[in-house]
Design a binder for these strands. Structure first.
Lengths: 355, 355
DNA sequence: TTGTAGGCGTTATCAG
DNA sequence: CTGATAACGCCTACAA
């Protein structure tokens, strides 16, 4: 009893023989353009071919096609880590769009480590991908320039770097929205949990926020801008540092919801009430933001859309077109962590402000 | 200026010509087994070939190899949704293991919808994957049986179904651990937020929990077991229903951390203090569990390991071997949401009890 | 409208 | 030990 009796898939030859035509006719009918199909065979025989294809469960062998056409229809995607909800969501957008274009994507984690970015990229290249999407760009790193020089088509998503094509959220604007909101609530002494310095997301959100405060006449001192990991632990450490200032800030802006959650933890540990004693705002409007015991004010960024757009851009690039940088608009969602008056039971997340 | 000047990658022929040997020799040296390489050429020429390969940045074209060998080294992975932290983490484990085995994986979301499971699986099959990993198995669905009948190698992960090979957490045990804990704390009237009925995870966790309570002489009435989505919204709805009972349960077991977070929200909205008025326990020990304002008691399940093991099993299957079902052990992590005495600042998550 | 032939890059087989 | 040759499945230029 052979266990390996998974039958070989039908090939064009199989179909052609069954339908009594030659291989090229079958090919034109099944895999060619609609017009090709029309010209290739009479309606009658075309139908016959299609019937056989269906019956024999024919599917073109993509490896043969790739070999022949020099296109793999494969796209490599690099993210810091897929277990980061933000990047998982962006990837869902990428994957959706890829499916629409008949492309297959595969993701890899780089953990934001340069040597892993290199290694994973080389791995993707060795799979002969048609192009790449990077969700883990580091500003100022030479790596992407090198890839670009090798004429490998790619698009950045979420973070931008250099003049490479990218799809991002308008993070400066997002930072400004938070600043506007906190200013309106009367906060003058604020701290920023700024994320990793190499990520444009954190840098831009911080810059937009700080700019607005400076314009308003309340410049944020450097001591009140603290870099951090993008996770709760990072947020916790940064918040602890910021709260050591005396007088302490009355509001904290974390460039990321998870960091904000860490900050909330620190407040609780110190017996401070988020939203009353210290306001806290996050970024990305992660589904959890609305669900927290004290719902979190956050900037909503169009994560799925960013992913989808990035892949669309890549497709244009692959078609020989050109890809501009795109910035998608954010919007502020006000909740109780900055504004205790905000109703929290029924209309979670429905109260949005923003442009 | 052609924009399409991405140069064609070097092929075996290129290398062979450069090194002054024939193609098959180059092939044996570069892509054959180490012994093959030894036999194929003198150490001298072998080195020469390797040097050229490195210089010309040669990488075997995987499409050609697949075509020739009838193996794609591709594995399709199906999950309900990748933006679910649990599945993203499992997938990271899968991807790690796949890389170790020289396999490429690609993930797709099925949203737990049967028609999408079918469609995505067919898509994977049309990519000529060597095998599949399903993270979205539905108990009692005929779908997997059909796939098995077609002799497509696959392994289930996280959820089991039928007698198909699977790698899961020992969810019954996990449920028992929670029951043990709540019983020890004196809870006699408890409610279960049971997850989706088609997922073995929720069903087993519930069963283990309920069994233990029955054994202890406090059977959980059916009215106190409520199905729910695996997200916060689902948990919120279920918790609201459970808390309508009079007298109300003194403890809630949610088969999933996100559902537990939803339950925490409901408690807050009703002015009840988690851990004091009503105990809440979750499952999976998501990184967030420890970070919540009131840290969440949860069952730690080895998510990455499950993913990695599942892929290892698939590899065995592909090698013609056999794959038993595996259940990995869970462990309970006690925190303030069930036991207010639990210290919460310093040693979050370090206090584990376990099987 | 239909058919033929060659080649994409690799590997396996067979002959020297 | 080395080298030629065929074939994996598909696509397409060219011929009939």
């Amino acid at each position: 009893m052979a266990r390996n009796d998974r039958q070989r898939p039908a090939t064009l030859r199989t179909i052609a023989q069954a339908a009594g035509v030659d291989v090229s006719t079958a090919s034109r009918v099944l895999n060619g353009s609609p017009e090709d199909a029309q010209r290739a065979a009479s309606h009658e025989t075309a139908e016959e071919i299609r019937r056989w294809a269906a019956r024999l469960d024919y599917r073109p062998n993509p490896h043969a096609t790739s070999l022949r056409t020099q296109r793999s229809n494969l796209v490599g995607v690099l993210v810091p880590r897929l277990s980061d909800l933000v990047l998982a969501t962006i990837y869902e957008g990428i994957e959706d769009a890829a499916a629409r274009h008949g492309l297959t994507t595969f993701v890899m984690n780089s953990h934001d480590r340069p040597e892993q970015q290199r290694a994973r990229t080389e791995l993707a290249l060795s799979r002969h991908v048609d192009g790449l999407v990077f969700g883990d760009a580091h500003t100022g790193a030479a790596f992407l320039d090198e890839i670009a020089e090798r004429r490998v088509p790619f698009v950045l998503v979420s973070r931008h770097a250099g003049r490479h094509p990218s799809v991002t959220c308008d993070d400066r604007l997002g930072g400004r929205l938070v600043a506007d909101h906190l200013l309106a609530l009367g906060h003058r002494r604020v701290g920023v949990i700024a994320g990793e310095p190499f990520a444009s997301t954190g840098a831009d959100r911080t810059a937009g926020f700080v700019d607005r405060y400076r314009e308003a006449g309340f410049p944020v001192p450097g001591s009140h801008v603290v870099h951090s990991g993008f996770d709760a632990a990072g947020g916790r450490a940064a918040a602890a540092r910021l709260l050591r200032h005396d007088p302490r800030p009355t509001a904290l802006f974390a460039v990321n919801d998870f960091a904000a959650i860490g900050a909330l933890g620190v407040l609780r540990d110190q017996g401070l009430r988020p939203g009353r004693d210290v306001a806290v705002a996050g970024y990305n409007d992660t589904p959890l933001a609305a669900e927290l015991p004290i719902p979190l004010t956050s900037v909503r960024s169009p994560m799925r859309e960013m992913g989808a757009r990035a892949l669309d851009l890549l497709v244009e690039l692959l078609a020989g077109g050109t890809a501009p940088a795109e910035r998608l608009p954010p919007s502020l969602v006000v909740r109780a962590s900055t504004d205790p008056a905000t109703p929290s039971e029924d209309d979670r997340g429905l109260l949005t402000a923003g442009h």
